[in-house]
């Protein structure tokens, strides 16, 4: 049960900071710029620059670093896994031999490089979700996507679906924990047995979870209809997004740095 408590990925921490108050569109686009340049950069020095930007961002956002790094924990396994795969599977100058396995210099460099990439990727997106409330995040996405409306992109519907999905992540996690506890009290065991048995043991969690998710969906649909929800057509926003000087400056700054980093490294 401790596993479920530790997921901070996708959580929003309210603070009054420069980063929090940025326009969500600017934040999303900046993150996108950083992520694109992450994949263009081919040298460690480039990652050092991007990493520094993110660290500065975390400091300005006043979100406790412990929170940011806790979000990394579930991803740690994937990072270590890719590191190991790269270590052993890359051909090149042999550094160390372990039976039929061999560690190569190229593998080591490549593995560390990919790990850094994943690391910064997660930090960037964590900073975005930690400093932006789900509502303004989807607001921003909706506005950004509405550029594509003319090719038939249902921007509002996509944004609404995302809002609902984000909104229900914690609810479903809570529900899962509750169901797990209830089944443990009834004699279920989720901690021992082989993989086959463990998978089978998930049935008592998954079925009640699906049942309740469907019920929730049904209730939500009725509630929305009762409030006369009819899609995005002609809908106005209570909170108007406004681009201020700070937003433009931030975007220019991030844009220049990422473009330079991508070109130079």
């Amino acid at each position: 049960m401790k596993i479920l408590r530790n997921i901070s990925f996708g959580q929003y921490i309210p603070r009054e900071s420069l980063i929090h108050n940025l326009d969500p569109r600017i934040k999303i686009l900046s993150c996108l710029a950083i992520i694109i340049s992450l994949f263009l950069i081919t040298e460690f020095l480039g990652y050092l620059i991007l990493g520094t930007i993110i660290m500065i961002g975390i400091i300005i956002s006043q979100v406790h670093p412990k929170f940011v790094f806790r979000g990394l924990r579930p991803i740690l396994f994937i990072i270590i896994f890719t590191l190991i795969i790269h270590l052993f599977m890359t051909e090149g100058e042999i550094l160390y031999r372990l039976g039929f396995l061999k560690i190569t210099k190229e593998g080591l460099i490549r593995g560390l490089f990919i790990s850094c990439r994943l690391f910064i990727l997660i930090l960037t997106t964590s900073l975005l979700t930690l400093s932006t409330s789900p509502i303004s995040l989807t607001d921003g996405i909706e506005r950004l996507l509405s550029f594509f409306k003319f090719i038939g992109m249902p921007a509002h519907e996509i944004a609404m679906m995302m809002t609902i999905a984000l909104r229900f992540i914690p609810t479903l996690l809570e529900e899962t924990e509750k169901i797990m506890k209830a089944q443990i009290s009834r004699g279920a065991d989720f901690e021992s047995g082989n993989i086959f048995n463990r998978t089978k043991n998930l049935i008592p969690i998954l079925i009640p979870l699906f049942v309740s998710a469907f019920r929730r969906a049904d209730e939500l649909a009725i509630a929305m209809e009762a409030k006369c929800y009819r899609g995005g057509e002609g809908r106005t926003h209570f909170r108007q997004l406004k681009i201020r000087m700070v937003d433009i400056l931030t975007f220019v700054l991030i844009g220049v740095i990422t473009v330079m980093a991508s070109v130079m490294f």
Partner: peptide, 17 residues
């Protein structure tokens, strides 16, 4: 211990499967 102490949570009908 959990065999000795039976815990029935709120809305236990939600745990049927």
């Amino acid at each position: 211990i959990r065999q000795k102490v039976g815990l029935v949570f709120q809305y236990p009908e939600n745990q049927l499967f």
